[in-house]
């Protein structure tokens, strides 16, 4: 079947989709957007998290046909879709990632790098989409709120401490930006 949808703001059309394919499969294998990860395909790990019509979902549990006409945001689209990032693209301490691509990162992406929240990185895209979703709703979440919001995203490497650090860091930088009228 044919499926039309918007992904990260761009209209996309894919053909020959098998009716049992998930949105995750279509993103990864038919659209060249492998950022959303296929870690469990049963909604237990959150690695495939995307926003579907602005709602955080596991893309492995969305049938491709259900995405017809919908708007999907993946980790690849985060820089353009989250809170404005340009003012915050690098750590003020100067200890930020030196990569010249860092200007294209969303604040939550930069915070994950700076806080050491990335190890193997397989859970990272899903966590970024989920954490960004949290910060859109609550710019200053408590630790318990962060834990609850990220409880659908498994990480096997970090023990989550540095992921918490990253979300706190992104929230604090957002606060700084707001105070400075950015």
């Amino acid at each position: 079947m044919r499926v039309n949808l918007r992904v990260n703001g761009r209209p996309r059309q894919v053909d020959d989709v098998w009716e049992g394919e998930s949105l995750l499969y279509v993103l990864r294998e038919r659209m060249g957007l492998p950022g959303s990860k296929n870690a469990c395909e049963q909604g237990e790990c959150g690695s495939c998290s995307v926003r579907l019509d602005d709602v955080l979902v596991c893309s492995c549990l969305v049938a491709a046909g259900q995405a017809e006409g919908r708007e999907v945001l993946t980790v690849e689209g985060l820089p353009g879709a989250s809170a404005p990032s340009s003012a915050l693209s690098s750590d003020p301490s100067g200890d930020s990632s030196e990569d010249d691509r860092s200007g294209e990162l969303a604040p939550i992406q930069q915070a994950f790098i700076d806080a050491g929240a990335v190890q193997c990185g397989f859970c990272t895209p899903g966590l970024l989409v989920a954490a960004d979703d949290l910060l859109r709703r609550d710019s200053d979440p408590s630790d318990a709120d962060i834990r609850e919001a990220l409880s659908g995203n498994l990480c096997r490497c970090t023990g989550y401490e540095k992921i918490l650090d990253a979300v706190r860091l992104a929230a604090a930088r957002g606060e700084t930006r707001r105070r400075e009228g950015g």
């Binding site: 596991c58 549990l61 969305v62 989920a130 919001a149």
Partner: peptide, 8 residues
Amino acid sequence: ASPQIRNR
């Protein structure tokens, strides 16, 4: 389950 599942 999780926030993602509760959303769907």
